[in-house]
């Protein structure tokens, strides 16, 4: 079964997601900061990364760019409370200052159903 890396500074949220994802049979590893996440994705080679935007020090934007810069094409699913209806314009081309190389995003508070659906979709297309 696929291995999923969750990068989020909120350990409680990680735990709640772990329960859900493990119940679906996924293997879950986690990191509580962008830096730690970068390390873990290098070493443990997850099949998908769930990444939070708002994190102290290295935020989700930076982490996503850093991951993609290494040439890694692991799909990234972003968790965000700020890309709400206001429309944060995610740009998809490298070099753009707003460049955000993520494949999909989920809004907080998380809807379990859509989280799983998005994960399944990304995994099946990669």
């Amino acid at each position: 079964m696929a291995k999923i890396l969750i990068i989020d500074d909120d350990p409680d949220l990680i735990e709640s997601m772990r329960v859900v994802l493990e119940s679906k049979g996924y293997e879950v590893i986690s990191a509580e900061s962008g830096e730690e996440g970068l390390e873990k994705q290098k070493k443990q080679k997850p099949d998908l990364i769930v990444l939070d935007v708002m994190m102290p020090k290295m935020d989700g934007f930076e982490t996503a760019r850093a991951i993609k810069k290494t040439g890694n094409n692991t799909p990234v699913l972003m968790l965000t409370a700020i890309k709400d209806k206001m429309g944060l314009d995610f740009k998809n081309s490298a070099g753009d200052p707003d460049w955000l190389p993520v494949d999909d995003y989920c809004e907080k508070p998380l809807d379990k159903g859509s989280l799983i659906a998005k994960i399944e979709k990304l995994l099946s297309s990669s």
Partner: peptide, 23 residues
């Protein structure tokens, strides 16, 4: 409100799997 929302979201994410019998 932003801070409250963060905590609330997590509370909800923790309650939900339990109510749905996943645990």
């Amino acid at each position: 409100t932003h801070d409250i929302k963060e905590d609330l979201s997590t509370i909800q994410s923790c309650i939900e799997p339990v109510t749905e019998g996943i645990t």
